[in-house]
Design a protein around this nucleic acid. Sequence first.
DNA 1: GCGACAG
DNA 2: ATCTTGTCGC
Length: 231
Amino acid sequence: MTIIEIPAGWPADETAARAVQAELCGRLVRDEEGPEVGEGQVTGLDVAYDDEHDLVAAAAVVLDARTLEVVEEATAVGRVSFPYVPGLLAFREIPTVLAALDGLTTDPGLLVCDGYGIAHPRRFGLASHLGVLTGRPSIGVAKNPFTFTYEQPGPARGDFAPLLAAGEEVGRALRTRAGVKPVFVSVGHRVSLANACAHTLHLAPRYRIPETTRHADSLCRRALKEARGDA
DNA sequence: GCGACAG
DNA sequence: ATCTTGTCGC
């Protein structure tokens, strides 16, 4: 398997990365509702790491938005392009994720990321970054509240509570399964918060985590194992 | 100044 | 993210 190159000019330190965020942040579109739930296609994205061998594997899995059946899969393997720094996760994941997206032949539709969109210290997390770079609608569905605060949502599936940053609603803690810890949904690019939550509920009919992310997670782990077998 | 912190 | 088997429970 080919190992993708880290793009020329990729930020080398935190100062450079923050400058890139500040510039791209100006291209974020927040006044669109986004795709209809259950129509077209939706694509789950995820990444797995092997710091030992300096490898990153990304997966993009396209689902039919109505049936949630897998339409197409693509993977890419690259080198670690940035250390993990809270607030700069995108710089660690994006080169390989973009390569995986490039491998698709069908329309990705809505991008569903494993992490945050505008619920971010500078309102420009992974999902927003990926949305702006691709021009596509995107949302972030995270498993942890990061630095944000929230009240426990009601116990039923679909119950939610605002995710707050200094009193501002930057996302929602959304219950996808009765009595189970909520997921944390935020807008990425070209999607409203209410629509992002509606998509998340539709994509998680049975388990806490959306089917998009579940598929992408297992696929990128498999891709990583194959990659370490080669090199 | 110190700790916490998506994946 | 990752290190990691079986096991308790619906």
